[in-house]
Amino acid sequence: MSIITIERKVLEKNDELARKNRELFARQKNFVINLVSSPGSGKTSLLEATLAKVKQRASVAVIEGDVQTDLDAQRVAKLDVPVVQIVTNGGCHLEAKLVHDALQSLDLSAVDLLVIENVGNLVCPANYDLGEALKVVVLSVTEGDDKPLKYPTMFRNASVVIVNKVDLLPYVNSNVETLKQNALSINPNLTVFEVSCRTGQGLDAWCDWLIEHSARKG
């Protein structure tokens, strides 16, 4: 038997491309967030509500990731925001290469804030760095307050948690304090926002945070 010693990261090709994306974002002074969640947590609704509030205050662009269809890109385009749709054709996550290719269709020099909406999935996107400044996890109260404990990798790698659909709290068995405690027990550095895209509750605080961080980047 002969042995070849390797010691290589399995995802080094992705990490290398993510590093290139990150360098490009730094040169262009873009603040980039990677929006992740389970399917149906309200990522796209949150994005629509957020864009409506921040697009007057910052120049925004969006990359949409979905397994199929450009329905989400159509929703975002209605808000007059530049958007590129990535269809993964079955792929359960975005990779740095897909984002890199999508960037060719955007004029980054004119962008303060770039939002990458990942494929709805709380497992796989945790492994793939896209070059973003930080990950934002959207978690709706209907999903249960124990979710952070079930998907710790994503919550450990994230910087912000947005608890969505808080208008539904009277009708579900989720306790928002338990949910926050569970998320913070995995990662005490998380910034948490409680919002409802339907009623608008909490959106201003989240949008102010976003604008403040986008401006700091520039």
Binding site: I3, T5, I6, E7, T153, R156, S185, I186, P188
Partner: peptide
């Protein structure tokens, strides 16, 4: 559960030493 909070003193300034890696080490 993979918390990054120190169980001894509750501090959150910690370094992950292992447990998140994904590497190819050797081929035989």
């Amino acid at each position: 559960m993979g918390s990054i909070q120190c169980p001894a003193c509750r501090a959150v300034e910690t370094t992950v030493l292992s447990g998140t890696e994904l590497r190819v080490r050797e081929i035989e």
